[in-house]
Amino acid sequence: MSDRTSLNIGLIGTGFMGQAHALGYATAEKVFDLPYGLTLRTVADVTEEAAAKAAKRFGFDSWTTDWRDLLNDPEIDVIDITAPNALHKEMALAAIAAGKHVFCEKPLAPLSADAREMAKAAKAAGVVTQVGFNYLCNPMMGLAKQMIEAGELGEIRSYRGIHAEDYMADASAPHSFRTDPAGGGVLADLGSHALATAEYLLGPITRVMGDCVTAIDSRPDRNGTPAPVLVDDVSRAFLRFENGATGSIEANWIATGRKMQHDFEVHGSKGALILSQERLNELHFYSTDDAPGRRGFRKIEAGPEHDPYGLFCVAPGHQIGFNDLKAIEIAGYIGAIAGQQPEPFGFDAGTRIQHLVETILVSSADGGWKAV
């Protein structure tokens, strides 16, 4: 691939995340000085209508209803998987066997054993991988990590994280890939983000104690007949970190009124940080260095000083958005394919998150602490 000036992308799936990825490639090529040009070669979906519409809308050269066509095209360099969770393993392993680089949305696989198999296969084949955790690409998230590592918060003592939305709050909403046990449940779907953020900021989690709850115990199947729900709707876990801090996370997809609450609080001996994805361009900082009577959380607004915000907008406080985070993630991945940097969040990292998810689920079933 060293003689290529452009990478050809094959995208599987045209739903919410498929659209985000397609827009991310288009934006990344325009915003960043990438080592390769990016060509949207072929998009695949299960229906002709969805595939053809996506190809026309996002500028793919062609479309197909069979994702295997992407593997058989020698011109395609990257297979990007945004299909339902239960299909990730089959698609990724087939792409790896075909010698393609693979970008897969989270969760990497419903079982950590499957994720490990995928990571092992990718390493053996020498392909570059990425798992979709674009919230970690927020410049304000990076600033928080820098401040923590620089000791601006002092000794880190406690952590709280939550990822809550309400897209499954309606009990009449039918079964989907999300409620299929082969697809995961809320801890895999949203909790994976909360866990990835916790470890990104504070380092390894060493012990967990989970409480995973199915609040809506049945949903209509494709025939409208009530069928049992066998996955979690709300999951919480207490955490112990290697650095001595303690904390908790919550994953909740029935949080009525919440559309995108991916928040964290970090509390240290000298200060604290708060960030909410609902206001992703703001990081709030409390410092005990402030004089008594003058203390309080102060807002740090995203601006050109917080790389790579300045590549998107030269003016502070004008904000970047969700799709921009996906473009940042893609730019890092393309840099890894070119050998300019390690994989930003490859299959090994995705396996780690799935192992945490699985350990919390086991802990909830057993009712006690588990070592990670």
Rank of each mutant, 00 (worst) to 15 (best):
F264H: 12
S112K: 11
S158T: 06
R295H: 03
E75R: 03
D366M: 01
P292S: 10
D180H: 03
G368P: 04
R352H: 02
E199S: 07
C137A: 15
A54M: 06
A338H: 07
V46G: 13
P107I: 12
I96L: 03
Q146L: 09
E282D: 14
A251N: 06
I274T: 06
S364G: 09
R240S: 15
I337C: 13
I360P: 01
R178K: 08
G99F: 04
A22Q: 09
S218L: 04
G185T: 02
E329W: 10
P35H: 08
G191H: 05
A150V: 10
I320H: 11
R116G: 14
I79D: 06
V43N: 07
G132W: 07
Q340F: 09
L311R: 07
A98C: 07
T42S: 01
F264Q: 12
S112G: 08
A113M: 07
G332N: 05
R116A: 15
C313A: 13
L108V: 02
Q319K: 14
E149F: 00
N323A: 13
M147C: 08
D114E: 11
K106P: 13
R258A: 15
V31K: 13
G142F: 05
G183E: 09
G335M: 07
W369F: 03
P139M: 02
A150G: 12
K370I: 00
S2M: 15
V213D: 10
A52R: 14
R298Q: 11
E49L: 14
A26Q: 14
M1F: 05
G296Y: 11
L34N: 00
L40P: 07
I254D: 01
V229E: 03
I360Q: 05
S235T: 14
G346C: 02
N138P: 05
A338C: 00
A196Q: 03
